[in-house]
Design a protein around this nucleic acid. Sequence first.
DNA 1: CATGCTCTCAATGTATACATTGAAACCGTC
DNA 2: GACGGTTTCAATGTATACATTGAGAGCATG
Lengths: 289, 289
Amino acid sequence: MVVEASGRGQAMTGVGRRSENRTAGDGPIGAAAGTAADRAYDALRSAIVEGELAPGAPLTEVEQAARLGVSRTPVREAFARLVAAGLATERGPRTLVVSDIDADDVAALFDLRRALDEQAARLAAARVLAERTAAPGLAPTTISAAATAADEAPTAAAFRAIAERFATVTPAVLQGDDPQRHGYYALVAEFDAALDAALSTSPYLAAAIASTRVHLARVRRLARDDDARLADSAAEHGAIARAISDGDGERAAAATRLHLHEALTSIHRHLPRPGAARRAADRRPEETS
Amino acid sequence: MVVEASGRGQAMTGVGRRSENRTAGDGPIGAAAGTAADRAYDALRSAIVEGELAPGAPLTEVEQAARLGVSRTPVREAFARLVAAGLATERGPRTLVVSDIDADDVAALFDLRRALDEQAARLAAARVLAERTAAPGLAPTTISAAATAADEAPTAAAFRAIAERFATVTPAVLQGDDPQRHGYYALVAEFDAALDAALSTSPYLAAAIASTRVHLARVRRLARDDDARLADSAAEHGAIARAISDGDGERAAAATRLHLHEALTSIHRHLPRPGAARRAADRRPEETS
DNA sequence: CATGCTCTCAATGTATACATTGAAACCGTC
DNA sequence: GACGGTTTCAATGTATACATTGAGAGCATG
């Protein structure tokens, strides 16, 4: 069954197994983690995303085991997770390499993002509506149910607050080199977290979305956005958040679609190959030079 | 970052690593496979899908190693894949159990399916259009380019043929107990394969879709469809295939949405808990008898 | 000099031995 | 008799040793 999926562009997984159970205060850097397999996976993932391990670089168990100071067994498990996450690809029967990522991959990744993020926006807005009808006249004075109230309708409030903070991101603010950008990306991360929270009843969708974020981090590194694009992106995010907080699913989906279109366009503008090179090479026109 | 995804309903992955490289003729049954890890994974996945390993059953390395006749190492890798596929869940720090699947899970799974399958239908239809414009007056007499021609516009033809075969599936045909049902499911599998082929340029989406099919197989076992539903489902599949072969993306997406809605409704009708039990339990209305 | 074969080797695949850890049973004490 | 501590044990986590296999270098031969 199931035609093999072309070659690259592996899987859509994530939901870190036992990762990021950082105890918030291990060492100077966040180097230590739970098990050795977790450390190995985190280190390798980070290295791939940061570009230290270039696309196409071979991943051998012995070498990485030596580099990370663990035995082959945890490295083996880490490799398996990398393959599941799509960050590594099996080339040949016994060769594992860092997955390549080019313009075609980005386009393919966005084919998936469109589907996932639009649905997520719709569902988040629907949740806002559901919360609204569930607790119509909830006064903040209900003392004994205060915690319950905070749990009851957080979605709208969270997205409203995030939308307002996105509104403060202007090109002028982004002038300061890295710290502000980090702040912006942190804000995006908060948005993602709010979305995850809103998708608590759709864990499959949430997991699929989470799995795309690793690849997006790689893409982000590949095509550094300029300040203007970042400001636009912030505005687009704000529009999405506002639509969700209003419970307007269609507007949220449309804003998401717009944002993804702009993001993809911007990325392709900054990337080497514009795309669609393979089909042109496959065909065999008789007049090719 | 990234809020942990609720608990159950893990990941969306798949793209079998090196599985199903069956050499088409190993033994009497298709029991033998490539590596021991592949065999272990296939065996465990099959056991879980078939219900031999019930939801909640603990998965211990030693026990499964003994049962499958391999050592712990391949079993370990198989477990990792099961977790990545969402068929197993880590309960506690050192306990792996077969993932549970109930009505809520099915609803959550369909939240993902809606997103993925609609996008897939749209993209497949778009591919049909692209092929049509790429080779407008392609005559079947171009001998030297015959193979190329067969590769050039297969999408429309494939879906057209599948649609016609779906049209032959009637309630009367489905009377014969299992063989006919198998035939129907084989037809669905062909549809899936055609879809995968059409999604060759969107491998991320294709992989995500593939990862949902395992769970759908479990659901199928849970809620056996009656003949009437199967016939309806065949008609719905046929409508989707026809829309794709016509290159009508919106119609294909709408037909997909309809099919998924009907399928989910039918499943919930056959499943123990209708769903949405958690929220009702969380809330504390004062007048709940 | 080109070509095919063999042979070595390095890497994975597998098995097993050792370390670690969490839980449950058991026992002693209050 | 209940409770707390201790101890045992079974399971995973890790390391390493052995088996297997594919690729490449090297060599012999046409």
